[in-house]
């Protein structure tokens, strides 16, 4: 666990900081992410995702959930509880192992203008309203293109992931 903190603490911090943008809250998100990790680590399946992707996913969940709660919207259920990892359907997938390099290659197959939105969001760390302001695109268009782009990247990974290990059920 100590090794895990040493190896991935920086990653979790960076993700939290990017979304939360406040040092004190970043520390909270980092701690909550590692708490989630200790609870759900036995559900990790290396055939499905790299350690980096798995931990990155937990960090994103916590960070986005934090931002959502802080935005004064109506109180809702947690974004996606860790227990969902235990549900067979939650890990249902095709023969794909999610990892960064393959995702980057898949991104390059998207239309250039959509790639640019992904770059602004994931590389520059811009929020959707900030992207809208910078590009001049309506906010709804930014959201739709990013959503559909994400689905398209997922589908590309599924189509090109045939050589990856098959995904056993976690049930």
């Amino acid at each position: 666990m100590q090794d895990c903190i040493s190896r991935y603490g920086g990653l979790v911090w960076s993700i939290a900081e990017r979304h939360v943008r406040d040092r004190s809250s970043t520390e909270d998100v980092v701690q909550e992410t590692f708490t989630d990790l200790w609870k759900s680590a036995n559900r990790y399946n290396p055939a499905i995702a790299t350690e980096v992707t798995f931990i990155g996913m937990l960090a994103r969940r916590r960070a986005i959930d934090f931002v959502r709660k802080a935005s004064r919207r109506p109180q809702l259920e947690p974004l996606c509880p860790s227990d969902t990892l235990h549900h067979p359907d939650s890990m249902r997938s095709d023969a794909v192992r999610w990892e960064g390099e393959a995702a980057r290659k898949a991104l390059k197959q998207l239309p250039p203008d959509t790639q640019e939105l992904f770059f602004l969001h994931f590389d520059e760390g811009m929020t959707h309203p900030e992207i809208s302001e910078k590009t001049g695109l309506p906010l709804g268009t930014v959201k739709t293109r990013l959503r559909r782009g994400l689905i398209e990247v997922r589908d590309i990974l599924r189509r090109t992931g045939g050589s990856q290990p098959s995904i056993p059920s976690l049930s």
């Binding site: 499905i48 992707t53 798995f54 990155g56 999610w98 960064g100 995702a103 990247v153 997922r154």
Partner: peptide, 8 residues
């Protein structure tokens, strides 16, 4: 997983 892979 896709979003996490891209972000990381």
């Amino acid at each position: 997983f896709t979003a996490a892979a891209i972000e990381t």
